[in-house]
């Protein structure tokens, strides 16, 4: 990078910033005060790096900064388009300043080419950073959802219940099974009730996951009752030809609990009032 005119850009930092923020405002990709600080820092660091060009460590700093800006913009809810617009407008501003600085067309061409190369590379990085920022949010949410949605409740000595809310996919089933089996071990329960009142639909895949959970529970030496079978679920199960005969199924949690009491040879009786 031997281009002297690009190095001279630093002296026109303020001008560049003005043009940049103007373009940003016009395109609607900016968000005011918070951004101004970021932009100032970025422009200053970028231009300093250009000034000392040849030293790649300087550009690494700029790259780190823009990646930080991109992921923070992602979290603030900017669209990828707006994020790209941010750097594109910087490029527009910079080339405008350059075109006023350089009169020789060949030199101008070289300078623009160089500028494009550096900024395009950064654009790719911001895209990656933006995506990663979003993915982090998604994976955190997935973790949160799977944690809050599989509580195991100890309903009686020796009986645990697990209400399932939402669709059972394979990764969810895995979490459900792990939680349920661990609870069975921890509480020494011999009966587990899986309540599927909150499962919107049971197709053959969901049924297969339920059967797997029941099998795993039995392998551990506990019995598993599935409750909360709504009429429409019973209908689809039969229409789809799913065989649930090996599994104890109950319409409601209450009747599942009654069955569990029976299995444990427990009796619930109303207290007689004496007198």
């Amino acid at each position: 990078m031997q281009n002297n005119s690009l190095m001279g850009l630093k002296e026109h930092e303020n001008k560049l910033l003005t043009i940049w923020s103007q373009i940003l405002q016009d395109s609607g990709a900016g968000d005011g005060a918070m951004e101004e600080e970021e932009s100032k820092e970025f422009a200053s660091l970028f231009l300093s790096a250009l000034e000392k060009s040849g030293n790649f460590d300087e550009f690494e700093k700029v790259e780190d900064l823009i990646i930080g800006i991109a992921s923070s913009r992602g979290k603030r809810g900017f669209s990828p388009r707006e994020n790209a617009q941010y750097l594109i407008s910087f490029k527009q501003a910079a080339s405008k300043v350059i075109s006023e600085l350089i009169t020789d067309s060949a030199e101008l061409y070289d300078a623009n080419l160089k500028l494009n190369e550096i900024l395009d590379n950064m654009m790719i990085m911001t895209f990656e950073a933006f995506m990663k920022g979003r993915e982090d949010i998604i994976s955190r949410q997935v973790d949160e959802i799977s944690e809050i949605s599989t509580p195991v409740i100890s309903v009686w000595e020796g009986i645990v219940a697990l209400p399932i809310i939402g669709t059972l996919d394979s990764s969810r089933t895995q979490v459900v099974m792990e939680n349920l089996l661990q609870q069975i071990v921890d509480t020494g329960s011999s009966i587990a009730i899986l309540d599927i009142s909150g499962v919107p639909a049971v197709d053959s895949l969901v049924a297969q996951h339920l059967i797997k959970t029941v099998s795993a529970t039995r392998l551990m030496g506990a019995e598993c009752i599935i409750s909360g079978i709504r009429p429409e679920i019973a209908q689809t199960v039969v229409h789809l030809g799913i065989d649930l005969t090996g599994i104890i199924t109950k319409a409601s949690l209450a009747s599942a609990l009654r069955t569990a009491f029976d299995m444990l040879q427990l009796n619930v009786v109303k207290r007689k009032v004496i007198g």
């Binding site: 895995q174 099974m177 089996l181 797997k212 795993a216 392998l219 551990m220 030496g221």
Partner: peptide, 12 residues
């Protein structure tokens, strides 16, 4: 007796 949960899930 005493099958580990991870072992039970893997077997299934």
């Amino acid at each position: 007796v005493g099958m580990q949960p991870a072992v039970a899930i893997t077997l299934v």
